[in-house]
């Protein structure tokens, strides 16, 4: 049984990891505390639902529509709102992004009501038996998430733009002196982070129903993952996401699903006490 739970936790944790990769990018590069990150997932889930309900597009196909849509939404929101928060005190950032999240939540409630909306992909009910039973949608979600996380990691490590993003994180004015258009880097980072929420949303909808407040749980969880893994660290976010997935699944079974936040906040506090920079964080990096 415990193996079954751990396997399930790892799979769903993969999606949390990808969500956290987006947030850690935004947090690490722009120093923006984005409390609307979870609501972006929610928006993506509703969009996936609409594409399914009105046009019959399979959620796994709509990844190709929802991800670019959320990327563009991120680019736009950055231009309208987020770029004004760069360098602002965290309190200001929290007010604005919490406000944005409430706005999105209320809009969802007005448009879609409070009902749970779910989709059925032909794959939804299929199960793989590999000693433990694995839901096919969970396996697909895990594989896509891990692949995309690795792609993002390589993008940051190997490409010129990726290096410019890391350089901007470490020293903004030096990056400017290198000829980097820092504002564009910020816009791109926010758009990538938000685009990833769209990807998460599309692969989550066959697993979780969409409802207006689903983002709340996601955002708390992703922040825990980001701090656990180390600010701005992609491998940290990947491992942190999986750990949180396992904690969530195991604690929900042995105690009660309502306890899961309590459990990962205990872990969160322990990590802050033992290793404040997170698993892969660099000491001092948070001060740059």
């Amino acid at each position: 049984m415990i193996l079954q739970l751990i396997a399930g936790g790892i799979l769903i944790g993969g999606v949390y990891a990808l969500m956290a990769v987006g947030l850690t990018l935004i947090f690490g590069v722009m120093r923006i505390v984005n409390f609307a990150h979870g609501e972006f997932v929610m928006v993506g889930m509703y969009l996936t639902f609409i594409l399914y309900a009105s046009l019959g597009i399979d959620p796994y196909l709509s990844v190709l529509i929802v991800t670019p849509f959320m990327f563009l939404l991120g680019w736009m929101l950055n231009g309208l709102l987020i770029k004004r928060l760069i360098g602002a005190p965290h309190v200001t950032q929290i007010f604005v992004t919490v406000g944005l999240s409430m706005l999105l939540m209320s809009l969802a409630l007005i448009i879609f009501g409070a009902d749970y909306l779910s989709v059925r992909s032909p794959l939804t009910t299929q199960v793989l038996d590999v000693g433990v039973l694995l839901g096919v949608p969970q396996v697909i979600a895990f594989i896509i998430s891990m692949m995309v996380s690795v792609i993002i990691y390589l993008f940051l490590k190997k490409t010129f733009i990726g290096k410019a993003i890391r350089a901007t994180t470490q020293n903004r004015s030096s990056a400017t002196l290198m000829g980097v258009d820092v504002k564009k880097i910020y816009a791109l980072t926010f758009a990538i982070g938000t685009g990833l929420t769209g990807l998460c949303a599309a692969i989550l909808l066959p697993i979780y129903p969409a409802y207006p407040t689903i983002g709340l749980g996601f955002v708390l969880m992703t922040f825990v993952v980001v701090v656990m893994g180390g600010l701005g660290s992609i491998p940290g976010a990947m491992i942190g996401g999986i750990i949180i997935g396992v904690i969530e699944t195991v604690s929900a079974f042995y105690f009660d699903p309502g306890w899961k936040e309590a459990f990962y906040f205990v872990i969160f506090i322990l990590i802050l006490l033992i290793r404040p920079q997170g698993f892969f964080g660099q000491i001092g990096a948070e001060e740059l």
């Binding site: 290096k163 890391r166 350089a167 470490q170 020293n171 004015s173 030096s174 990056a175 002196l177 660099q282 001092g284 990096a285 740059l288």
Partner: peptide, 8 residues
Amino acid sequence: GRQLFPFL
């Protein structure tokens, strides 16, 4: 003060 990118 150099202003290198310390973690690159």
